[in-house]
Design a protein around this nucleic acid. Structure first.
Lengths: 106, 106
DNA sequence: TTGACACGTGACCGAATGGTCACCTAACTT
DNA sequence: AAGTTAGGTGACCATTCGGTCACGTGTCAA
């Protein structure tokens, strides 16, 4: 399994994306803290966090018996750079801002 | 199935990422043209292109009996924006440039 | 109009995936 | 020391997924 395969496979599950959302909102959470946010047993959460960690999307820091989780934005940015070049980036960013503005007005 | 689920599922398969790579290198290809680049029957390629199209990652234009495929960068950018805020973006971009520079020197 | 060509559909199969559970280790608390 | 808390492991099962195949539709060229 290649590195990028691990990243994309990790992102393929809604539960794992939700975990990333949680960490994006606030970093440094423990597994137990995140368990309460998912409708799933702790085993499921543990499994998902392991997949995210092995993909490098989440990095961990041990503190006693706790394991603190942090979001790593680097792989996400690399996905972006794979299919969006510098030139296109400007146009797309503008387009999305415009779309957001229109949606807010309606 | 939600929109974003379709996008991430579409990106989860290596064959489909390869198809996006082909379209990133050069847009407007037909299905038949791309078949020769994959070690797979045309049915597989057709199926993958359909998944990419339904995810909005690829948009098509019909021309007679041919179907021309174009890469749509918008969903990719939205992935980026979901987990990378404006502030972090600068740091990450710098970090990746630095990493690339170091790898080129070695 | 006949045949070749580009593409679509639905069924099918082996492999991988999401989630659960029984059981386990390590660290903190009192 | 004993109980509690945070987390890890390997087996298991239902479902999904990647890829193939037989067959069908519409378009172009001679």
């Amino acid at each position: 399994m290649t590195d990028d395969d691990r990243v994309f496979k990790a992102l393929a599950a809604p539960s794992r994306r939700f975990l990333l959302d949680l960490l994006f909102a606030r970093d440094g959470r423990t597994q137990t803290e995140m368990e309460s946010e998912l409708e799933m047993t702790r085993f499921g959460v543990a499994k998902h966090l392991k997949v995210l960690e092995e993909a490098g999307l989440v990095v961990v820091r041990r503190s006693g018996r706790e394991k603190l989780h942090y979001l790593n934005p680097v792989p996400i940015r690399q996905i972006h750079d794979r299919w969006i070049d510098k030139y296109t980036e400007k146009h797309v960013a503008t387009l999305i801002d415009l779309k957001r503005t229109l949606e807010e007005e309606s």
